[in-house]
C-alpha cells in the first residue's frame, strides 16, 4: 500500500458547497490531482480535508461571446488542446495545453490546476526520505534553502505551461471565495515568492479564465525545453504573440516565460519594438532581453546558465517563425 495521510474527502457538486467545505482547517482543493496527489503521497502536503472539484459542473462551463472566450477552470487540458476555437484564435494556449506532461495527464488534469500548480524545485519535489536526509528546505518544514544557502527567499520555479500562453493574450481570471467574486488579470494571480506564489485569499477558488477578444486571432505559439520530450515539466517555456502591420513592421509583440522564475513572467519593454522592422538585429535584441529578465536558479538538474540561454533562443526562434522571417 502507498503512504497516504488520513484525510476526509468532500465531493461537492455546487461551487458554494466547495467553498464551504474548504473552510475546514488544513484543507486543500483537488482538481485533476496529477501534481497535487503526488505531493500528498510524498508527505509534502498533509491535508485533513480534500475538496474534490471534479463533480462541480459550474467549473466546466465554456462561453463564447462578443467579449471573448470564458473557460471554466475545471475543463481538462485535453479539452483545451482539442478546442477548435482556441486553436484558431489563441493558438499558443492550445499548444501549451498539449505540452503539459503526457496525454494521460492531459485527459484529467485541468486548466485551473495547471494555473494553480505548486512551484517546483529539485530539493522539494522528492520523497519524504530524500527530503528528510537533506533536513528538508525553506519551502517545507526546513529552515535552509539549498538553492541559495544563507538566503531567506524561496526560488522554487512556477512550472505551469498554460499561464504564459494566456498572459500574452491579457487573460483575466475570476476568483470566487467566501467573500464573493473578483476578477483580476491572470498576471496578478502570482507573486515573486516560491513559497507563496499565488495571491488567492483563503478559501478562494480560480473559477474561470477569460480570454479577451482584443487580441483574438493574433498569431502566437508556445514551446518548452524539457528533459524527456514525452512528459516532463518545462526547464524553460516561452509563449510569444506577434502581430505584424501591413508594411511588415511589428504592430504588437508580447512574450511570457515559465519555469525560470517563481511566477510566470511577462517580458517588459517589448513596446519598444512597435513600428520597427523585424530583422536579425531586432531578434538578437529580443533574445538578450529575454535572457536578462529570466532568473533561473539551481532548481532543476539542468544548470541555470543553460536554461537562460535556451529561453532566449526559444523566444527568438518563435518570434522569427511567427513573422515568417528566415535568415
Amino acid at each position: 500500500m502507498e503512504f497516504m495521510p488520513n484525510f476526509r474527502l468532500h465531493r461537492p457538486s455546487q461551487l458554494t458547497d466547495a467553498i464551504a467545505a474548504k473552510a475546514e482547517a488544513e484543507s486543500l482543493y483537488l482538481a485533476g490531482g496529477t501534481d497535487m496527489l503526488v505531493n500528498v503521497r510524498r508527505g509534502i502536503e498533509q491535508p485533513k480535508h480534500l475538496v474534490d472539484l471534479s463533480a462541480v459542473a459550474e467549473l466546466k462551463r465554456r462561453r463564447d461571446d462578443a467579449d471573448g472566450l470564458t473557460l471554466g477552470s475545471g475543463l481538462t487540458l485535453a479539452e483545451i488542446a482539442a478546442d477548435d476555437v482556441i486553436a484558431a484564435r489563441y493558438p499558443a494556449v492550445a499548444q501549451a495545453a498539449r505540452a503539459v506532461a503526457g496525454p494521460t495527464h492531459q485527459a484529467y488534469g485541468t486548466l485551473g490546476g495547471n494555473l494553480c500548480l505548486d512551484t517546483r524545485c529539485l530539493f522539494y519535489n522528492q520523497s519524504e526520505w530524500w527530503r528528510k536526509s537533506n533536513d528538508y528546505c525553506l519551502k517545507e518544514r526546513g529552515d535552509i534553502c539549498h538553492v541559495a544557502p544563507g538566503g531567506k527567499r524561496c526560488f522554487a520555479a512556477f512550472s505551469g505551461d498554460v499561464a504564459p500562453a494566456l498572459i500574452v493574450y491579457d487573460a483575466e481570471v475570476t476568483l470566487t471565495g467566501p467573500d464573493g467574486t473578483r476578477r483580476i488579470p491572470l498576471e496578478k494571480l502570482y507573486r515573486n515568492d516560491g513559497m507563496a506564489h499565488l495571491t488567492l485569499k483563503p478559501g478562494e477558488i480560480l473559477a474561470a479564465v477569460h480570454l479577451p477578444a482584443t487580441h483574438a486571432g493574433d498569431p502566437s505559439s508556445y514551446e518548452k525545453a524539457r528533459i524527456r520530450g514525452s512528459i516532463d515539466f518545462p526547464l524553460a517555456g516561452v509563449a510569444v504573440r506577434l502581430k505584424l502591420a501591413a508594411d511588415g513592421t511589428v504592430a504588437d509583440l508580447a512574450v511570457a516565460l515559465t519555469a525560470v522564475n517563481p511566477y510566470p513572467h511577462r517580458i517588459t519593454g517589448t513596446d519598444a519594438y512597435k513600428g520597427k522592422r523585424l530583422d536579425t538585429a531586432l531578434l538578437d535584441a529580443l533574445r538578450d532581453q529575454v535572457r536578462k529578465q529570466a532568473k533561473p536558479m539551481r532548481t532543476t538538474t539542468v544548470a541555470p546558465w543553460y536554461r537562460r540561454r535556451v529561453v532566449g533562443a526559444i523566444a527568438r526562434r518563435l518570434t522569427a517563425e511567427l513573422a515568417g522571417f528566415t535568415e
Binding site: 502507498e2 474527502l9 490531482g33 496527489l37 480534500l50 474534490d52 484529467y108
Partner: peptide
C-alpha cells in the same frame, strides 16, 4: 494506467472514491 469511463487514467493518482 487503467481506463475510467473509457479514458486512460493513472490509477496511482486517482482516489478510489472519485470513481463513484
Amino acid at each position: 494506467t487503467v481506463l475510467v469511463d473509457g479514458i486512460a487514467r493513472h490509477a496511482c493518482l486517482t482516489l478510489a472514491a472519485v470513481c463513484e
